[in-house]
Amino acid sequence: MNTEKPLLIKRLWVVSFSLLLVLLAAMFLGLSLGSSHSGIKAVFQNLLGIGPQDPMLDTIIWKIRFPRILLATLVGGTLSLGGLVFQAILKNPLAEPYILGISGGSAIGAIIGILMGLLRFPGVSLMAFSGSIGTLLLILVMSSGHTILKKDALLLSGVMVNAFCGAVIMFLVSLTQDARLHNIIFWLMGDLSMVDMPQVGILAAMLLPCFFLVFWFSNSMNLLLMGKEMAQTMGINVKAVTVTLLVATSFMVSTTVSYCGLVGFVGLVVPHLLRLLFGPDHRVLVPACVLGGGAYLVFCDVLARTLPDQGEMPAGVITAMIGAPLFIYLLKKTRR
């Protein structure tokens, strides 16, 4: 019994450190590649501060690419963590903020906020948060009859919530023809290009405390997965933990939506992959999700930036192209 704690801490360090290396590698890729083709060697020279320095490359690396990879890291970590929490609390391996419609609800709130002429922070973020809480309540009300917790019913209701959110978004967009919504198509598919350093700072200040909060409750999630009664006998206030986690997750997800739109399926791909690699202990999975999810989205964003010949595509295109097939695969597997 005594050896369990040190072992866990050691595992935690090993997992975190290796994923941190992966994240750093992805970040390096993110700094080196972009739509303007400046060789990797020049980037190396800039990072190490040796050789001839090009001030233009310096601007591109530190003022354009750097905020973007930080954003991708934060958003990827958030969405993966969101998936992990929803999967644990709803006891459904296919739960994910985008699939459940939480992201869609946030998007409605954010668009209303944009149309009302609110500032990105705090106005639009708050509107997005209320939108996500709205969908969350809808899901919880629907799930109160227990039937919803079965996989198919939950997924179906998620699909419906998503369809509804999509319709409301198109409704709002068609009503206004607002110039501010010109970029809406990109935004709806997850656009990481429009954020600068101060905004990343605000985002980090909102998200990092949530990361720690979720980590604080990671052992509770382990116990919750064993069943309500079990968790209660182990001294967990099931209701309080559930509500705290759901609200914190909705807050995180809605914040990322208000900054870069709908990036789907990250919360599905990353937790499943990490569970496969590191086992089901949430005390390890929570930090792993933050680091691994960050690396995953940075990598997807690199693809989104470099694959098209002209301009770039939204990062959500890549994540959906990877995530949706995996979703179908998981659905088939869990049905058996």
């Binding site: 972009g34 233009m56 591109i60 110039a179 301009g311 770039e312």
Partner: peptide
């Protein structure tokens, strides 16, 4: 090319080292 006028590619613009950008109100974010 530096992206489409509603979705500009910031990095490409900066890489061209412009000393002046001329923008249009309707469209450019």
């Amino acid at each position: 090319k530096v992206g489409s006028y509603v979705h500009l590619d910031l990095e490409k613009i900066v890489a061209l080292k412009p000393d002046l950008c001329i923008a249009i109100k309707d469209g450019n974010p």
